[in-house]
Simulated scan of single mutants.
Amino acid sequence: MSTANVIDARRAAGQAAFIGYLPVGFPDFDGSVRAARELAAAGADIIELGLPYSDPTMDGGTIQVAAQRALDGGFRVDDVFRAVEQVALTGVTVLVMTYYNPVFKRGVDRFAADLAQAGGAGLITPDLIPDEAGDWTAAAESYDLDRVFLVAPSSRDDRLARTAAASRGFVYAASTMGVTGERTTLDHRARQLVSRTRAAGAERVCVGIGVSTPTQARDVASYADGVIVGSALVRCLLDSDRDAGVKALRETAESLAAGAHG
């Protein structure tokens, strides 16, 4: 099912979609696929598979550590497409979260073709703005892939409008300024940002950065179309041995899904 259809189905039921992030290659390739499958079984509507990168400007400490371990373990870009293919077999919708340099280095058209062939729904590109995304937009159109761009509380209204027009699937609203990571409270401006982004023309707006508890997920679900969680899931795998980590991930994901789904 496409990203838009997944979100729309939840919205029709008066719920928000639960979107979970995990990096490919952590704790190793097979372990990352196993974790993503558990995340799907726990109720994730959409899964973001992260492409580990050596200069993660938006990633907080938890995701940075996991990504570095993946790189140290021999991660290669081809692993992302293998992971997408295996996780998509569960029936869950799979997006890839990546900084743009690996896409550019591989070749934009080739990256898009490989992603589509693997069964991926599209890309989230946190460091790419629509004004500079001409090649990616063209490739995504050619291969019927979603383009998810980010907005932040500091985004001007004209920027919101350009991002809404350029995005397909949903617009990713960063709840607060800063890097990813768990927070005890969420910036009140997240609600305002969702409202402003919708007013600028976005059909679907999902909120990420800082969401880590079922209560926060439920709160975000009251005003957004999707709830995005990353660090709280990755931490489960960092803080425990493999089997215990997967069990903790399943339990955490189930509680977050329940919050997002109301």
Score class of each variant (00 low, 15 high):
A161K: 13
S2K: 14
V227K: 01
N101P: 10
E48K: 02
L128Q: 06
V80D: 02
E141H: 13
S167Q: 01
G245W: 02
V205R: 08
Y21N: 03
D8W: 00
G122R: 05
A44Y: 05
C236Q: 15
L22S: 06
R106C: 10
G134K: 14
R147E: 11
T176I: 15
A70S: 15
I209K: 00
F104M: 13
T3Q: 06
D55W: 11
E203I: 00
T62D: 06
L145E: 11
T62I: 15
P102T: 05
T62C: 06
L237M: 14
I209N: 04
A260M: 10
G201A: 11
T176A: 14
L150T: 07
L193H: 11
L95H: 06
I63E: 04
S54T: 15
Q216M: 10
T185F: 05
V80Q: 08
V24M: 06
F29P: 00
A221R: 07
F170Y: 14
L256W: 01
G50L: 08
T197I: 08
F111P: 03
A41I: 05
S175M: 05
G60P: 02
G226S: 05
V87I: 10
L256F: 02
D28I: 05
R235G: 00
V80A: 14
G31H: 04
A248S: 13
Y99L: 01
A67V: 04
A9G: 14
A41W: 03
P130Y: 05
M58E: 01
R156E: 10
I47V: 15
S155V: 10
A67T: 13
E141Q: 14
G107H: 08
I209D: 00
L49S: 02
L22V: 10
L193Y: 10
L186F: 12
A112M: 04
D158S: 13
D157P: 05
R82C: 04
A165V: 11
T163A: 08
R242V: 10
A173H: 03
T98N: 04
L237E: 03
E254M: 12
E132W: 07
Q117I: 00
L238A: 10
A66Q: 06
A174V: 15
A248T: 03
L22T: 08
S195A: 15
L186H: 08
A224L: 09
